[in-house]
Amino acid sequence: MILQVEGVGKQFGGLQALLDVTFDLPAGQILGLIGPNGAGKTTLFNCINGVYAPSAGRVIFRGEDVTASKTYDMAHRGLARTHQIVRPLNELTVRENVTVGACFGREGHTLGKASQIADEVLAFVELSDRHDQLAGSLNVGQKKRLEMARALAAQPYLLLLDEVLAGLNPSEISRMVDIVKRIRDERSVTIIMIEHVMHAVMNVSDRIIVLDYGEQIAEGSPEEVANNPKVIEAYLGDPELAEQLLNE
């Protein structure tokens, strides 16, 4: 198991954002994390990678208890993530952004080696032609790929992708889905992805977990989850998504 989440809960004041989330993730899988807005998906990511300390439960990464570790510790241990709202280092170039990932990630490479890795990763996400541009000047789709490149450059064991498809047009989505699959297949990186674009997440995930109001209401293969009545009910609060889901 690369990651074990055991009874993780998170409370903000009186609000229970996450309650007793438990799952195991074997290496090499793509795990989809879905649920209506505000279901606690990003909070779960934040509890796994150390942005928040969970109020309850444990997180075990590669056999070690990493509950409430610092974010940089998690990065050094081989966990990388992207952010729902992209966070490029605006005044640095695209290549420098990615070099940061390689320098300070799992391997902690020297600058020279790191910039080689940066070039390779930029080619992988098809951003090579932009390497000299300031990150702040990219468009949204490019920024999403930059986030991805930065995370990959760290050469992580586990990658957390937070809505990398949001805000992309259909052709960009299929390009990104392709990249996600190749990350698992060619780089043997395990992935958890939060996604709202249902057909994409159903298509790439080996397994799916559904959160609703901070609780884990379903888990299983894409087909199982799609036919689970509790899931459909949860999405009825969000008619657009429910309709999408039912159309699959």
């Binding site: 942005v51 300070f104 990630g105």
Partner: peptide
């Protein structure tokens, strides 16, 4: 490399930490 870490902190400290900058 140390300086690159500093620049990353300047641009977005939380994001820099997520990438492993101590």
């Amino acid at each position: 490399k140390f300086g690159l870490g500093l620049l990353a902190i300047r641009e977005d400290e939380d994001a820099a930490e997520v990438m492993g900058v101590v």
